[in-house]
C-alpha cells in the first residue's frame, strides 16, 4: 500500500517525544542561514519562487509521503488560494498577511469539501478523483468573473505588511516570504513527528491493522488531506503576492503534475526531499526556458527515470547512504 519501497525499515522513524534530532536542527539552521544570504547572490524573485514551490511540495509530501495518498489535483488548492489572496489584496485592499490568510483559508475549505469525497476511495481511484475535482475547479476559475478568465488577476499591489512595512522592495518581500515558507515547512515537520504523524504512518503501513486498533482511519485521512491542502494554499497565496498575479496556470492539472514530480525527484516521504526537488525543477524551468517545448520533454524524461531507476529520490539516496533519516 505504501509508496516508499523499503517501508519495512524504520529509517524515518523518530520517536515523537525526542524533539528534533540534532542533525535536523543543524540542517534547518544551515538552510536558514543560506536563505538569509541567498537574495544577495541570486535574483530574489527567483529565490522566492523556489521557496513557494518548496512549501507546496512539502505540503504535498505530507499527503503522499506520510499519508500514502497520491493526489493528482493539488493545483486546485494552490490555485484557489492564489486567486483568493490576489483578489483580497487587489479588490478588498487587504494587507499582504491578511490576503495570504484569506487564500489559505479558502484552500482549507476546498480541501475539506474535496477531501470528504475523495478519501472514500484509495490508491489509483483517489488519484483520479482528485484530478477530476481539480478539473472542475479549473473550469470554475476559467468561467467566473472574479478570476479574470484567461487573463488572471493582474497587478496585485504588494501592499504594506501589517499596514506598516512596505513590501515594494524585493528584499523586504523576500524576508516576508522566507518567514512564511520556512515557518510552514517547520510546521509540517512538526506534524509528521507528532503522535498524529505516527498514526498516519500506521495507517499507511497497514490500514486494516489501524482500523482494528480502533482508529477512525477516514477521519485521519481527511485531516491530513485538509492540512496538506491548507499548506498548498499557503504556498499559492504567497506566490500570488510575489508575482503580483494569479492565473490559470496555478490551477491547471500540469501544475498538479509538477508538484508530484518535485516530490518524487527529491524523495517522497523524506523531510528535505521536496525542498530539493522543488529547487531543482524550478531552476531547470528557469534556465531551460529558452529551449521551449523541450522543457516538457525533459520533465517527462525525469519523471520516467525517477520512477524506473531512482524511486527514492535525491534525498532518499543520500539518506540511505548515511543511514540517517533526512
Amino acid at each position: 500500500m505504501a509508496l516508499t519501497e523499503n517501508q519495512g525499515d524504520e529509517r524515518i522513524h523518530v520517536p515523537p517525544s525526542a524533539g528534533m534530532p540534532v542533525l535536523h536542527k543543524v540542517i534547518f539552521l544551515v538552510l536558514l542561514a543560506f536563505l538569509m544570504v541567498l537574495p544577495f547572490m541570486v535574483y530574489p524573485v527567483f529565490a522566492m519562487k523556489v521557496m513557494c514551490f518548496a512549501l507546496f511540495a512539502a505540503a504535498f509530501n505530507l499527503l503522499l509521503g506520510f499519508g500514502g495518498l497520491l493526489s493528482f489535483g493539488h493545483a486546485a488548492f494552490f490555485g484557489t488560494a492564489s486567486y483568493v489572496a490576489a483578489h483580497a489584496a487587489k479588490v478588498w485592499g487587504l494587507t499582504p498577511e491578511l490576503a495570504v490568510l484569506a487564500g489559505t483559508g479558502a484552500a482549507a475549505l476546498l480541501g475539506l469539501a474535496i477531501g470528504a469525497l475523495a478519501v472514500r476511495r484509495q490508491g489509483i481511484y483517489f488519484a483520479m478523483v482528485t484530478l477530476a475535482f481539480a478539473q472542475m475547479v479549473y473550469f470554475f476559475a476559467l468561467q467566473t468573473e472574479f478570476t479574470g478568465g484567461e487573463d488572471g488577476i493582474q497587478s496585485v499591489p504588494r501592499g504594506d505588511l501589517f499596514g506598516l512595512i512596505s513590501l515594494q522592495d524585493n528584499i523586504a518581500l523576500y524576508f516576508f516570504v522566507l518567514a512564511v515558507t520556512f515557518g510552514g515547512v517547520l510546521f509540517l515537520y512538526r506534524i509528521t513527528h507528532s503522535p498524529f504523524g505516527q498514526v498516519l504512518k500506521a495507517i499507511r503501513e497497514n490500514e486494516a491493522r489501524a482500523i482494528s486498533l480502533g482508529y477512525n482511519v477516514n477521519r485521519y485521512k481527511l485531516l491530513v488531506f485538509v492540512l496538506s491542502a491548507t499548506f498548498a494554499g499557503l504556498a499559492g497565496a504567497t506566490k500570488s503576492q510575489v508575482f503580483q498575479l494569479a492565473s490559470l496556470t496555478d490551477v491547471h492539472w500540469s501544475m498538479s503534475g509538477e508538484v508530484v514530480l518535485m516530490t518524487l525527484l527529491g524523495g517522497m516521504g523524506t523531510i528535505f526531499g521536496p525542498l530539493v526537488g522543488a529547487a531543482v525543477i524550478v531552476t531547470m524551468q528557469n534556465y531551460l526556458a529558452t529551449f521551449g517545448a523541450w522543457v516538457t520533454v525533459i520533465q517527462g524524461v525525469i519523471f520516467v527515470l525517477s520512477v524506473l531507476l531512482f524511486r527514492e529520490g535525491i534525498v532518499g539516496v543520500i539518506s540511505r547512504r548515511f543511514k540517517r533519516p533526512l
Binding site: V45, K49, G152, Q154, F243, L245, T249, N286, A289, T290
Partner: peptide
C-alpha cells in the same frame, strides 16, 4: 535574445524582471 513564456504569466514576468534587472 529570446525566451519561452509558455503562456504562463508568472514564467513570463519572472523572465522579464530578470532581463530588465540583470
Amino acid at each position: 535574445i529570446s525566451a519561452d513564456h509558455q503562456n504562463k504569466p508568472d514564467v513570463g514576468s519572472n523572465i522579464v524582471r530578470q532581463w530588465l534587472d540583470q
